[in-house]
Design a protein around this nucleic acid. Structure first.
Lengths: 228, 228
DNA sequence: TAGATTGTTAATCGATTAACAATC
DNA sequence: TAGATTGTTAATCGATTAACAATC
């Protein structure tokens, strides 16, 4: 392990970590618009958070603002990117090239935000003839070789639920320790491996819960309880 | 507003609401496997949460377990579905039928979990000849008519970032009050409208942050700070 | 100096969890 | 009755926010 630059061994709360990419994106937009400086209030507006929370979040990174003036957009942007770790590209592998895998492979936001899709893998030989977003679809069994060769640390699972645990096991065995899981299933992984889960129908269900409680609602005919 | 059944005017914490769909999915799997009863410990294992937290979550819904025995799978499943509001189908409209829109339209998990995609809309006339997952792609300008006709309360935005705010404005004007936003931009909406955001690159960045901090890491050559 | 805005403090709020009495 | 498991309490932890001293 190489020695770290002096400033940052404090650890950043999870809630703050989850917001840093939001700030980063807003700062990128501001930079593209030619804005050189912004206040915590302006950045808070742009990201939809409370300005006190924003300042508290930034204070975990260090002291990068100027009292009475605000933040230098380019400088703060760089500091946040460095903290997150997206000043260099992360090689990513996507497994499961169905509809969602296609969409992910074609998503341009990865490349511009610090990620490079180095391989698309699928167990189905009929999909292995395809080229998606300029990348060959290869057999799932190539996983280990690709992880080794490209130094892949992050894997994306876009397979059906039934295949997801096997894919995760293989990824972990191959040395991947960060997994983004789109399959609607809970993955069991050893300690030290991070899994984040994106579940489309869960998001819709959370919306439905609140929608159901909104005031003048159409009468919903309750259906009967199941006999038990 | 119709009167509510007696038991539930207590309100459920947000953190609990976000977990209810996870419990629901696990209970559905158990039911399909023919399991009639389960303990909080078993359900907690299946969903990856602490069993005390699970019991506390369920206690906000009511008292649906039996001490010394556990929970009846079918009954608890029904009660959670009722609380979330997915005992009947919610009509959903998807706007933006690019790669991601295709993937969403084809996602079978919606139908089985209380949602019905009633329309696919796109502003691009060349996409309006397509049929995706058995549903015609129609002009975005049909939005208001479809919302009215089908009683759509939930809209999904899968357009590029530049179009998302306009789409949201039109949705709100048409009467939609719950939006699931896949576009990488912060939406401004009036009070009373719920927006949930799914951002793929943000999820990856959160993984990258933790990955970067994991112990014996390959030396990352730091790139220089920008001149300011 | 006067005005503006950061970084930090401290109060408050909400979520998690261990422990256990209630009870099947 | 003895064993098992729920539902709830209370302690703890973490996140949010208003307020303001520090300082540009």
């Amino acid at each position: 392990m190489t020695s770290r630059p002096s400033a940052e061994p404090r650890d950043i709360p999870e809630a703050t970590v989850a917001r840093l990419p939001v700030y980063l994106r807003a700062l990128t937009t501001l930079a593209e618009d030619g804005v050189a400086t912004c206040s915590s209030e302006e950045l808070a507006q742009a990201t939809g958070v409370n300005s006190a929370k924003l300042r508290k979040d930034l204070s975990y990174l260090g002291s990068y603002g100027t009292r009475g003036v605000g933040y230098d957009v380019a400088y703060l942007r760089y500091q946040i990117a460095r903290q997150i770790g997206v000043t260099q590209d992360w090689p990513v592998v996507i497994v499961g090239i169905g509809n969602l895998g296609h969409a992910l492979a074609n998503y341009s936001g990865f490349r511009s935000r610090g990620f490079r899709v180095v391989a698309l893998l699928d167990a189905d030989p009929s999909r292995q003839e395809e080229v998606v977003a300029g990348v060959d679809v290869r057999p799932f069994d190539d996983l280990e070789a690709i992880v080794e060769e490209c130094g892949v640390a992050i894997g994306v699972i876009a397979t059906p639920a039934a295949a997801a645990q096997d894919v995760a096991d293989r990824m972990v065995a191959a040395g991947i320790r960060s997994i983004l899981n789109f399959a609607p299933t809970v993955l069991a992984v050893p300690e030290g491996v991070d899994v984040r889960k994106v579940d489309l129908s869960i998001e819709l269900q959370i919306l439905a819960y609140h929608e159901q409680r909104k005031s003048p609602h159409l009468a919903l005919t309750p259906i009967e309880e199941p006999a038990i």
